[in-house]
């Protein structure tokens, strides 16, 4: 039987478009990073300022992702199981970081948590500011991966456990958590990847101080600005490798989560 023909038609377009738009630039990036040889590459990525930027980025991104894993799960829980006036508005607001330009996010955080803070929290130009910016931009990820799982989750299971004498905490730990854990993990991983690559929301609030608040993306950007594209390429390839690893990780979580369905 002849299958629907559009796939073969679209396949050519997809291949050409993807090659020109994405694959070719990435190939040029990897190619450029190898121009100085293995030793040149290593010298660039192991330079103290690059290492400091990369360490800061990975550490703060991890902390922000975990923070949002916890608070995002709480938020998803409240949005599904709780009921209060204005809930649908709160639900819509969660998507704000996806809609708002990151530079604008950085500016409004700087206004609220900067020198003229109305709540007296002056975090600008510190590592806390980087953390705040990353919390903002990665906020929706865990909420939006956990929420649909919680909606689908059968409340009767929990009621049965309660009637058999399980405490509230036991019900959460033994029944709810195992079900939403894959959602939490895949949301956390995507949030982490997003945080590692973030620049727009950080650039104004962090002050970009080398060894203090300069993240990897800003470091790479500064390398380009100061006329060192091959230095930028080397660290960019490191970030590219991290992105690939994270995507593989997310794929692994998804396969693990659907292992029962596939039999």
């Amino acid at each position: 039987m002849r299958r629907f023909a559009a796939p073969s038609l679209s396949f050519g377009f997809v291949t050409v478009f993807l090659s020109v738009v994405a694959a070719l630039p990435l190939a040029a990036l990897v190619w450029s990073s190898t121009k100085g040889g293995a030793s040149g590459f290593w010298a660039t990525v192991s330079a103290p300022e690059a290492v400091a930027a990369l360490e800061l980025t990975l550490a703060v991104a991890a902390i922000a992702a975990v923070t949002n894993a916890v608070l995002g799960t709480v938020t998803a829980w409240v949005l599904v199981r709780d009921d209060f006036p204005g809930k649908s508005l709160v639900n819509a607001v969660v998507d704000l970081p996806f809609a708002l330009p990151t530079v604008v996010a950085g500016l409004i955080l700087l206004t609220f948590y900067g020198p003229r803070s109305p709540v007296g929290v002056h975090a600008a130009f510190t590592r806390t500011a980087v953390w705040l910016a990353l919390l903002f931009v990665t906020l929706p990820f865990v909420v939006r991966t956990v929420q649909p799982v919680l909606i689908e989750l059968d409340v009767e299971m929990e009621e049965a456990a309660r009637s058999l004498g399980a405490g509230r905490l036991a019900v959460f730990r033994r029944i709810v958590l195992p079900n939403i854990l894959p959602g939490i993990l895949s949301g956390l991983t995507m949030a982490f990847a997003r945080a590692v690559g973030e620049i727009g929301s950080i650039v104004l609030i962090s002050g970009n101080l080398p060894f203090r608040t300069e993240v990897a993306s800003v470091f790479i950007f500064n390398q380009i600005q100061s006329g060192n594209p091959h230095g930028a390429a080397a660290l960019a390839v490191v970030l590219l490798a991290i992105s690939f690893a994270v995507l593989l990780g997310v794929g692994g979580v998804r396969r693990f989560a659907t292992r029962h369905e596939r039999g």
Binding site: A22, M190, G197, F221, I224, P229, A236, L248
Partner: peptide
């Protein structure tokens, strides 16, 4: 499939540098 998802996990600066070098 994985390649299409890549920009979600990739730093926009890396994208910029890749275009810059090409």
């Amino acid at each position: 499939n994985a390649f299409v998802d890549l920009p979600l996990a990739l730093s926009p600066v890396v994208v910029g540098v890749a275009l810059f070098l090409l």
